[in-house]
Write a protein that binds this DNA or RNA. Structure first.
Length: 511
RNA sequence: GACCCGGUAGCUCAGCUGGCAGAGCAACGGACUUUUAAUCCGUAGGUCGUGGGUUCGAGACCCACCCGGGUCACCA
């Protein structure tokens, strides 16, 4: 701790209050507090008592014990109003000198915004009608030594709309000090509560469908299952290079080989790439694999899964996302990638050679075409011409083979694979295919990837001999899906930056 | 990684063409026993992101760097 004289004024004054508390024999950091109620429950039980005529002659409810953080304060000389906030909400507290006694009331001088206190008293309605606990006693639970950046909150009496004045808005500080962001922004806490409920709903869905939740390695001797650059590290005792997983796909399919025929994993994946509104290098992926299913079955599964989440967490099948109203009503539209692009170009893409595609892409000024092959050019053109219009949920299906080294060839058209991606609000939410289970074909696809890797494509995959060995034992027909959980949370909580749905998003080291 | 914008009191921000570092909120002292962005009077609070440079003089201008936000690109 820096010496007192080096602290800024606001920090120094709180330290001085700590000393004053010691002089008055008040413990600033308590061990526990036996609360009988949470804030929201106090209001609910008061209202119930009120409507059933169980209030006292003075209009008081039954005594309650509450713990929480002081988030606002309005002193009036011999009385004061404050709001006490807990995990559920907040309630107003009325401190009155002739109720508390001179000494206890005087000790309130040492209480600040941000302090945690326990309060005991009876609820009543103030003249303006707000349910308020009249403090008969209070206990300091934790002294706050650093002021939280509370804004002043104005609540419109008619609409209930909340306006925050002089709040805490510096994005950098909010991400770096998420604890402070959460402490002063109930709406941020609500986003993360919703995130938690979404993840629970996903688990309950797959559990009820007979899937087994499993855990596969984060540290892998080879990485694969996606096109991405990995994080590299070293295991010292084994003197071995390890990669943080970019996907759990290849491990989950090994489990299908082993007879665990319905598995899912909610996993942190790591990709050594740039940051953006929709990318954090560490992100949460849900993958599931189901034996005997193909990609058509999985489209049905995706629809049912999303409806389960919407119905149980959001309570509506329509959500607002930015400027759009997104409606999840199955069956979602299915759009063939090649067909959609052909329509946009007015030419059958299957008939176009690589040079023709490149010319078209250059004509449209699509950036970063260096080294792009036929598949990548198609992908780029699709991204440029079709993706921006994919607002409502759409399954984009049947991708070119070059782009899909782990997908089965399409049973009716060998030029494409049995694959789909679900697009919502122009963003890719999930990716799925009928899993390639022919080990000889898989080896050829890996070798093509390895050639790309050798040629300098640092996002291409390596040959995974162990995975091929597993396929040689025999993997039943399998449908698999990978979904970006963070992105789903974004869409369902109307957050336009992935950082706003990740508690501690990656940031450059401070100093 | 490229481009654009930003970093000034605990927080939110102003600071013009280079001329004494400002406001609101929070804090501190005082008044106020049903307020709710409480109100009123007063006080204190600064490494102007960092390091160089130009200048009689730099928060401002120039250079480099650090950090963030946004946009683009790769990926979910």
């Amino acid at each position: 701790m820096p010496p007192m004289e080096d602290l800024s004024q606001v920090l120094r004054i709180r330290r001085e209050k700590l000393e004053a508390l010691a002089e008055r024999g008040i413990e600033p950091f308590a061990y526990n507090y036996d609360a009988t109620h949470r804030t929201v429950a106090v209001a609910a039980s008061f209202e119930a008592a009120e409507s059933e005529g169980r209030l006292s002659e003075d209009g008081d409810g039954e005594a309650v014990w509450l713990g929480g953080r002081i988030v606002s304060w309005r002193g009036h000389g011999k009385s004061a109003f404050a709001h006490l906030e807990d995990g559920d909400g907040s309630i107003q507290i009325y401190f009155k000198k002739d109720v508390l006694g001179d000494e206890s009331f005087a000790d309130l001088d040492l209480i600040d915004l941000g302090d945690w206190i326990g309060v005991q008293g009876q609820p009543f309605r103030t003249r303006t009608g707000e349910i308020t606990v009249r403090a008969e006693s209070y206990t300091l639970l934790t002294k706050s030594l650093r002021p939280l950046p509370f804004g002043k909150v104005e609540t419109d009496a008619e609409t209930g709309e909340r306006t925050v004045h002089s709040g805490f808005s510096d994005q950098e500080t909010r991400y770096r000090q998420r604890y402070a962001d959460l402490a002063v922004h109930p709406e941020v806490r609500e986003v993360f509560r919703t995130r938690s409920r979404i993840v629970s709903a996903l688990r309950s869905f797959f559990d009820s469908e007979g899937f087994l939740e499993v855990e596969t390695p984060v540290l892998q001797p080879l990485y694969g299952g996606a096109s991405a650059k990995p994080f590299v590290t070293t295991h010292h005792a084994l003197d071995q290079t390890m990669y943080l997983r970019i996907a759990d796909e290849l491990y989950l399919k090994r489990l299908i080989v082993g007879g665990l025929d319905r598995v899912y994993e909610i996993a942190k994946d790591f990709r050594n790439e740039g940051l953006s509104r929709v990318h954090n290098p560490e992100f949460t992926m849900l993958e599931w694999y189901q034996a005997f299913a193909d990609y058509r079955d999985q489209m049905d599964m995706v629809e049912r899964m999303l409806l389960h989440v919407l119905d149980s967490v959001i309570g509506s099948r329509t959500v607002t996302y930015g400027e759009h109203e997104i409606t999840f009503e199955p069956p979602f539209q299915r759009l063939s990638l090649m067909g959609g692009l052909s329509d946009a170009l007015g030419i059958d893409v299957h008939e176009m050679g690589e040079s023709e595609l490149r010319a078209k892409a250059e004509e449209l000024k699509v950036p970063d075409l260096d080294g792009a092959g036929r598949g990548k050019l198609i992908d780029k053109l699709f991204g440029e011409l079709v993706e921006p219009d994919l607002i409502q949920p759409v399954f984009v299906i049947d991708h070119p083979k070059e782009l899909s080294p782990l997908a089965k060839p399409h049973r009716e058209d060998p030029r494409v694979t049995e694959r789909f991606e679900l697009y919502i609000a122009s963003a890719e939410l999930l990716n799925a295919f009928s899993e390639l289970n022919d080990p000889i074909d898989q080896r050829q696809r890996f070798e093509a990837q390895a050639a790309l890797l050798a040629a300098g494509d640092d996002e291409a995959q390596q040959v995974d001999e162990d995975y091929i060995r597993a396929l040689e034992y025999g993997m039943p027909p399998t449908g698999g899906v990978g979904m970006g959980v963070d992105r789903l949370v974004m869409m369902l909580t109307n957050q336009t930056s992935i950082r706003d749905v990740i508690l501690f998003p990656i940031l450059r080291d401070e100093e």
